[in-house]
């Protein structure tokens, strides 16, 4: 084989692998990306039941109800719209009423959001970035020396419920 032919073989191999990779990436991107929405977005965009989304906002104070067999219900609010979420499983350590949360799942036929995972990756200082921005959009965000100060003060579980009505 001449130098030229060898180079052609290499280029063909590289091109082949790249084409396969590009095809894989494109098909996977089509099927496995999940859009982030605030409760208001969900209401406005009329998201179809069964479409996987990430729902982000604050856990409405007083909305957390624990049922049997690890069933939990709570609502996620962005200050304007609230949305009921049902989840079965153990909530993360950092899950609190009045704090930011991201739930991933889909709407069921009855308009309730069925989450299969709940994320609350933050402590009192940090809040999921998407949630912070969704809240900013609704005007419920105060910048306080770089510290997040969401519209609802942080109540403990025993605080009187003050769920914002949507």
């Amino acid at each position: 084989m001449t130098r030229k032919q060898r180079r052609l073989v290499m280029i063909a191999a590289a091109g082949g692998i790249l084409v396969i990779a590009a095809a894989l990436v494109l098909s996977a991107l089509r099927d496995s990306i999940v859009f982030f929405n605030s409760p208001s977005d969900v209401a406005e965009k009329h998201i179809a039941p069964g479409t996987r989304i990430r729902l982000g906002g604050l856990v409405a104070p007083g909305s957390l109800v624990r049922g049997d067999n690890l069933e939990v219900k709570f609502s996620v609010t962005d200050g304007k719209t609230a949305m009921a979420v049902a989840y079965r499983g153990i909530l993360p350590d950092l899950f609190r009423e009045g704090q930011g949360v991201i739930a991933e799942g889909a709407l069921d036929g009855a308009g309730q959001f069925k989450a299969d995972s709940v994320l609350a990756k933050h402590d009192e200082k940090y809040m999921p970035k998407e949630v912070a921005e969704a809240l900013k959009k609704q005007g419920h965000w105060k910048e306080e020396s770089g510290k997040a100060a969401p519209v609802v003060s942080r109540p403990t579980n025993s605080a009187p419920p003050a769920a914002p009505k949507s």
């Binding site: 692998i17 990779a21 098909s27 996977a28 099927d31 496995s32 999940v34 982030f36 998407e130």
Partner: peptide
């Protein structure tokens, strides 16, 4: 980086999770 780029360009927020990587990284 796609989610970052998409957000910068269109403002749309997405997350690319484990299924994407399993479908692309695995076969390679």
């Amino acid at each position: 980086l796609y989610p970052l780029a998409l957000e910068a360009v269109t403002g749309e927020k997405i997350s690319v999770g484990a299924p994407f990587f399993n479908l692309t990284f695995g076969p390679l």
